[in-house]
């Protein structure tokens, strides 16, 4: 299934955009990315379930 738009399935606010707003990370960047994406996914689930489920 081809993805035509830049906001991929599962993503509301891409990490690649978010990291531009952050200062130079002093610790583990993967941890910051992982948590950002996990919580971002909840926003995605919310809006798509509004459409599909409710």
């Amino acid at each position: 299934m081809e993805e035509r738009n830049p906001r991929k399935p599962g993503v509301c606010f891409p990490w690649e955009e978010k990291i531009k707003e952050l200062p130079k990370l002093s610790g583990d960047p993967e941890l910051v990315r992982k948590v950002w994406e996990e919580i971002d996914l909840l926003g995605y689930i919310f809006i798509w379930h509004c459409l599909v489920s409710f």
């Binding site: 299934m1 081809e2 993805e3 035509r4 738009n5 991929k8 399935p9 599962g10 996914l41 995605y44 689930i45 798509w48 379930h49 599909v52």
Partner: peptide
């Protein structure tokens, strides 16, 4: 429909 496909698949998979 083509644009919705990968998202509806993602919702199903999740």
């Amino acid at each position: 429909c083509e644009a919705l496909m990968p998202h509806l698949y993602k919702v199903a998979l999740l």
